[in-house]
Design a protein around this nucleic acid. Structure first.
Length: 419
RNA sequence: GGAGAGAUGGCUGAGCGGUUGAAAGCACCGGUCUUGAAAACCGGCAAAGGGGCAACUCUUUCCUGGGUUCGAAUCCCAGUCUCUCCGCCA
């Protein structure tokens, strides 16, 4: 959510920056609504002030007049609330604006590669896809999932299930022991308010799974990412400056409808309705957002380094970033079967955009309150890491070598092969 | 599922129709004292929004939404959430 004052005072600049974000919001309407809203407020307040004075006099002869004022106030108040509602509706749909160093562009073609790391494996045979490998091992079962559940789900079995768990534990351990994150095991349901806070709602409601608890309580949604629940830990709070930075890590299932991606990545477990992800969230003094983003991204890269998987880091352009992001690095891992890099992590700073929606603030030394900076990143997507290991560590006979660093998590198993 | 209790500023907690935006304590900030710190003492300290270059000023807010009243944190109704007890339960 943007500060209306900022919009008012920097309108043309703001408009230009929002247009870089591929949105079709009627920004001129904002100014109009804002002006209307404020003039109604002035009218209302003038009458309220009058009424207050009358009331204080406690004089019977003035009661009728006061009652009359009340009616007028009610009327104006209703109009004003109406205008403000319309204004907020528009404001809540405007994406964050990008930092200066973010490339301007319409789609992924304008993204900039900024780092490449690791060696692309040179196979003496034609590398198989992760689903071929997994199915041949009898350890990935898509058909079974179709039977029990439906499309875009998978059964991971036996040693691959163990490997998946190992990946997740290894990532968490690294982040808590080496990168200073605190482990959290959060709820997987989020309230509508939390979904609003991080920006999933109202604009992206169609991507979310709503859960019906009962008829009484408020709306609940399965988290599409732990970012929602971890970031909202500071919802409506005022932290002390000395509490900062807060760094959280959680490994959770994530649930997404993947609406609008029909026909995309239908084979394999690249795009599922449910997947595990290790998520990193930082809550910081907003002046530190940029540094924290670098730190977070390198925390995520470190995982790939340790797994010895080849990857590259991409700086997303304005048109390709997520709704709440101010700047985003995607980390892409090499997939031999596709001969391309695929996204395995996305690290973003949101500046104060989410904090403003959440009313998440901190107290500065002079007691002034300021909105917090929030960042989130995958560290990493567990399912996709499993895919990357399958494909990059495959051998000609279809067995999978286990990366050294994961062996302690696998009872020192060295290779996964068909039984 | 049944029965109760509650929701007040960053926190704890008074107030229960008319200078109450709200006592008190804690926390925090400034100062005195001290070589420095602590303690003690003095002072300050809610938020959001509107107007003004500014000093400043106005309005709203005591869970949310309605209602009663000239006037509501205080009374009434509905809702949400929290807690306790009973039942059920991984």
């Amino acid at each position: 959510m943007h500060d209306i004052k900022y919009i008012r005072n920097n309108f043309s600049e703001f408009k230009k920056q929002v247009n870089n974000r591929n949105t079709e919001v009627n920004l001129d309407k904002i100014l109009e609504l804002d002006t209307k809203n404020r003039s109604l407020i002035q009218e209302k307040e003038k009458l309220e002030s009058e009424k207050k004075t009358l009331s204080k006099q406690n004089d019977k002869s003035l009661f009728a007049k006061s009652k009359d004022l009340s009616k007028k106030i009610d009327k104006i108040s209703e109009d004003q609330l109406n205008e403000r509602k319309k204004l907020n509706q528009i404001l809540s749909q405007i994406p964050n604006i990008a930092l200066e160093d973010v490339p301007v562009g319409k789609d992924e073609k304008s993204n900039k590669e900024i780092k490449k790391s690791g060696n692309i494996p040179n196979f003496k045979f034609k590398p198989k896809s992760h689903y071929e490998l997994g199915e041949n091992l009898n350890m990935l079962d898509f058909e079974l999932a179709t039977k029990t559940t439906g499309s875009r789900f998978v059964f991971v079995k036996d040693k691959l299930a163990q490997l998946e768990r190992a990946i997740s534990n290894f990532m968490i351990d690294t982040h808590i022991n080496e990168n200073g994150y605190k482990e959290i095991s959060p709820p997987l349901f989020a309230s509508e308010n939390s979904m609003f806070g991080t920006g999933q709602m109202p604009k992206f409601e169609d991507d979310q799974f709503e859960i019906k608890l009962d008829n009484k309580s408020g709306r609940k949604f399965l988290i599409p990412t732990a970012e929602v629940i971890l970031t909202n830990m500071v919802n409506d709070t005022i932290l002390n400056h000395s509490d900062l930075p807060l760094r959280f890590v959680a490994s959770t299932p994530c649930f997404r409808k993947e609406a609008g991606s029909y026909g995309k990545d239908t084979k394999g477990m690249i795009r599922q309705h449910q997947f595990y992800k290790v998520e990193l969230v930082s809550i910081v003094d907003p002046v530190n957002c940029k540094d924290e983003l670098e730190r977070m991204t390198s925390s995520a890269c470190k995982i790939l380094d340790k797994l010895k998987l080849p990857y590259r880091v991409i700086k997303l352009c304005t048109g390709d970033m997520g709704f709440s992001a101010q700047k985003t690095y995607d980390i892409e891992v090499w997939l031999p079967s596709e001969n391309i890099y695929r996204e395995i992590s996305s690290c973003s700073t949101c500046g104060t955009f989410q904090a403003r929606r959440m009313k998440a603030r901190f107290k500065k030394s002079n007691n002034e309150k300021e909105f917090l900076g929030t960042l989130n990143g995958s560290g990493l997507a567990v399912g996709r890491t499993l895919i990357a290991i399958l494909e990059n560590y495959q051998q000609e006979d279809g067995s999978i070598l286990i990366p050294d660093i994961l062996r302690p998590y696998m009872n020192n198993l060295e290779v996964i092969s068909k039984i």
